[in-house]
Simulated scan of single mutants.
Amino acid sequence: MALLEQKTMKTADILNEFQASFFAMSRLASFPWTFVENDLLSNKSSELISELLKQTVLHPLCRRFPPSVRYRRMFLSELIRRQEAADCDPLDQLYDALAEVLGAEEETECHKSYLLPSGDAVSLLENIALISEGTTGLVTWEAALYLAEWALDHRQVFNGRSVLELGSGAGLTGVTICRSCSPHRFVFSDCHATVLQKLRANLRLNGLSEQTSPAASVAELDWATATEDELTALGADTVIAADVVYDPEVAVTLVQLLSKVLSCSSAQVQPEILICSTVRNPETYSGFKQQLENAGIHHEVMAAPVSHVFPYNRLAAIELIKLYR
C-alpha cells in the first residue's frame, strides 16, 4: 500500500511539474520525460498521457491563455513521439489536439502563465521574440522570477506598503506581489511606450486596476529625466527592480534615479530598495556596484535561498541586493 501511495504522489508531482513548465513555456528538454517513458514502457497504457493532456493543452487555463501555437505543436508532437516509441495504443484526443494547432496561425505574441502556490496563476501576454521593437521589456526574464519567489518568501516586506517597481517589463513580479503579498498600492513603471501598453493589458488580464485592492497603476517613468517632485508624488516606501542592470549607460541613469529616490525621502523613513540582477556581464555588474558606492549608496547581498516556485534556468547567476544610505 505504501508503495502505491508513493507512486501516486510521484505521479501527482510529475503532473504538477509538467503543468507549471508547459504554461511557462519552459524548454521541452527540461521536462521530466524519463518518468513518462518508464510509465509508458511498464504499463503499456496511455493513461498518463491522457492525464498530462488534461493538465496542459486541454486545461481551461490553456483555452483562456494559450501558449504559442508553435510551442503547443512541439509539445504535442513530443508526447506522440514518446507514446509511439513505447508502442502504446493511439490516443484520439492527442491527435485531435495536434490537428487543432496544426491549422492555427502563429502570432507574434502569446500567453505565459506562472502558477502560484495558492493554485492561482499569473497570466501575461508576452512577445515570442526575446528582443522586439527595440526593447527586452516584452518578455519575462530570470531575475523577475527570482524576485517574485523572494517576495513570496518575504511577504511581510510588502504587506500594507506602497510599492514602486522600476522597469516592470511584462509585469510578472508586480502581479505576483499584488496577488500574494497584500501591498496597499503598487505602481508599475517603464519608459518604453510599447512596454507600458503591454503592462496595462497584463494588469487587466489579471484583474488589477486603481479601483482594486491593492490599487495597481502604470506610470511612465524616464530615469534620466525623473525629478524628485515626481518621485515624491509616487509615494513609495518600497522600491524594487529586476533585470535592469544590463548596460553600462543604463546603470548610470539607474544610480542617478536611486540617488534621487533616497534624497527625496526623510532620513527616518527611507524606502526599502531591492535590486535583483542576472549577472550576464560581471564587468557591467561590478561597475554598477561601484557607481552605487561612488554615489554614497551601500548594498547588502540577500543571499538566503528562495523557495522554488516557477520553472526557469537556476544555473543563471542571480543576485539580489538591498540598498541603503
Rank of each mutant, 00 (worst) to 15 (best):
A242T: 03
L199C: 07
G207S: 12
V175P: 10
V255H: 05
I240P: 10
D229P: 00
L254P: 03
L292S: 05
A226I: 06
I273Q: 05
A215R: 07
V252N: 02
F186A: 00
G171Y: 10
L231M: 03
N294A: 15
L257D: 01
G174P: 10
L203N: 04
A295M: 05
A236I: 04
Q256E: 11
F288N: 12
L231D: 00
V252D: 11
P214E: 01
E220F: 02
L221E: 04
N206E: 12
G287P: 03
V239N: 11
G174H: 08
L254A: 05
K289L: 15
R204G: 05
N281S: 14
T238N: 03
P183W: 01
L199G: 07
E165N: 08
E249K: 13
F158T: 04
L164F: 05
L221R: 08
Q156C: 03
Y246S: 10
F288S: 11
D229A: 15
R280S: 06
Q291G: 11
F288T: 08
E228M: 13
N159H: 08
L199S: 06
G167W: 06
W223P: 03
E249S: 14
V195A: 10
H184N: 06
D237N: 14
H192Y: 02
V261Q: 01
N202D: 10
T225A: 12
F158H: 03
Q290R: 15
V244K: 02
L257V: 02
V218Y: 01
T212Y: 09
G235N: 15
S263T: 08
L166T: 06
G169E: 04
L292P: 08
R179E: 10
Q291N: 14
V279D: 05
V269I: 02
C181Q: 08
S265G: 02
Q156F: 06
V269W: 04
S162G: 00
Q156R: 09
L172D: 02
E272C: 13
P183K: 01
Q291H: 13
Q291Y: 06
E272V: 12
V187D: 11
S189N: 07
A241S: 15
T284N: 15
Q290S: 14
T176A: 14
V279C: 05
C181W: 04
T173Q: 11
V261R: 01
V250A: 15
L258M: 08
E293F: 12
V261S: 00
C191Y: 12
V269C: 10
G160I: 01
S168G: 13
E228F: 01
S259W: 00
T284Y: 14
D222I: 04
F158M: 04
A295Y: 09
L203M: 12
E230S: 13
T284A: 14
G160S: 00
Q290I: 07
S180A: 14
R179D: 08
A193V: 09
T212D: 09
A242Y: 04
T238I: 15
L234K: 02
